[in-house]
Design a protein around this nucleic acid. Structure first.
Lengths: 147, 147
DNA sequence: AGTGAAAATGAAAATCGTTTTCATTTAGAC
DNA sequence: GTCTAAATGAAAACGATTTTCATTTTCACT
């Protein structure tokens, strides 16, 4: 990883190493706060902005992408595994990943047809998971009034 | 529209009528600011929060959805036409819509497989449009340093 | 038409995640 | 070892979104 970053003009530091390692060890779709908490539990001296900047860096070098599901929080989605989409539960905010191989093919074709270079994609389905439907979260959501 | 809202427990007002009408007359993917400016050009007395609240209402009743492409601005995507995805140019921020019938089929199937109710979807491809590639925007983007 | 309860409005302030600033420290190329 | 650019941490700035609150308006029901 140090060498990987070096070729892109970035340096390695103890903080960066911890942040990167923690990010790739954590569950998918962490927020800045979540990663900050995790990193803080290991090294209390690391600043919030350092965590934030390193998440941006991880995206910059192509290892993750920012995703926003609708609550105002930016999450970071690792791109180191198979192409995937997200099922986002409007009730409990849980995210389920699904394989997107088939869709990726369609999108690649679409990009070509529109003379667009394809640098990445996001596919999200919003709905309610089985548990939330069982709890009746659907109804409370739909009849909720505007603030 | 007045009757449609009434059945959902909302009232019609002159401001709301103007905001709704303007929204559906404008181009796709307007921001709060853009709609506010438009509405303001017709009625200077309408407040920002009224515009904001009514955009939320339009989403609430299922006529639009919020989308965020990566710049920090929430845009409102009408759902009154055919299902579509977005090609988002990382250079000029332009959005091109494409038909998503094929993908919708896949997503519906995916939702069923995961015991998920399907309330909506978002499909976005990030890349560079032909013009931005011609201008070399791709390179300047990729070599841009982290702040 | 009149009345009352609930909803809507407008202005201003609050909120809160994100981003920048700046002084200082550190990495790593030479 | 030295030097320069990059990285860090704390704090402040930023800015879009959301809420508050006093007032006005809609509309269901007399």
């Amino acid at each position: 990883m140090k060498e990987f970053l070096r070729t892109k003009g970035f340096k390695m530091t103890p903080q960066r190493e911890l942040i990167f390692r923690s990010f790739f060890e954590m569950e998918q779709h962490v927020s800045v706060d979540e990663l900050y908490d995790k990193v803080r539990s290991i090294d209390r001296s690391i600043g919030y902005s350092t965590v934030w900047r390193n998440l941006k860096l991880i995206c910059r070098v192509g290892l993750a992408q920012e995703v926003s599901m609708g609550d105002g929080i930016t999450r970071y989605d690792r791109l180191t595994r198979v192409p995937h989409g997200h099922l986002f539960c409007l009730g409990c905010k849980k995210v389920i990943e699904f394989n997107a191989d088939q869709i990726v093919g369609v999108l690649a074709q679409t990009a070509v047809e529109n003379d667009f270079s394809n640098k990445g994609f996001k596919v999200e389905v919003q709905g309610f998971c089985a548990e939330c439907r069982a709890k009746g979260a659907v109804d409370s959501f739909e009849t909720e009034s505007v603030s």
